[in-house]
Amino acid sequence: MSRISKDQVKHVAHLARLAFSEEETEKFTTNLDAIIGFAEQLNELDTENVPPTSHVLDMKNIMREDVPTKGLPREEVLKNAPDHQDGMVRVPSILE
C-alpha cells in the first residue's frame, strides 16, 4: 500500500512553493513513498516518555546587550537583487 498519494505530493509541493510537471509528480510520489516507508522503521522504537532533542548542547536563551549598530548600505543590500529600481527591490504585482 502506498503511504503517499499524488494529491498529497501536490499539496506538499504547494506548501514548499515548488511546481512539478505530471511526470515529476509521479517520480516524487514514488521517491517520497520509499523514503517515508524507510523512516517508518522508527515505529519499532518505544519513545513513550523520551524527550525530543532539538539541540545537542545544554544552552538556551543566549542574550546580548541591545546595542544599535549601523545597517548595511543600500547599494550592498541591492547588489544581489535580481530586479530593483530607485533603491527598491521590484516584484510582480501582488494586488489585482
Binding site: A13, L32, L42, L45
Partner: peptide, 22 residues
C-alpha cells in the same frame, strides 16, 4: 518535499517528533 511533509499538519508527531526522540 520530505521536510515539508514531515513538518506538515497531521504528520509532525509521527515523523518529526519521533525522529527527535530517536
Amino acid at each position: 518535499m520530505l521536510g515539508t511533509f514531515a513538518l506538515s499538519s497531521g504528520y509532525y508527531d509521527a515523523y518529526y517528533k519521533k525522529a527527535q526522540q530517536t
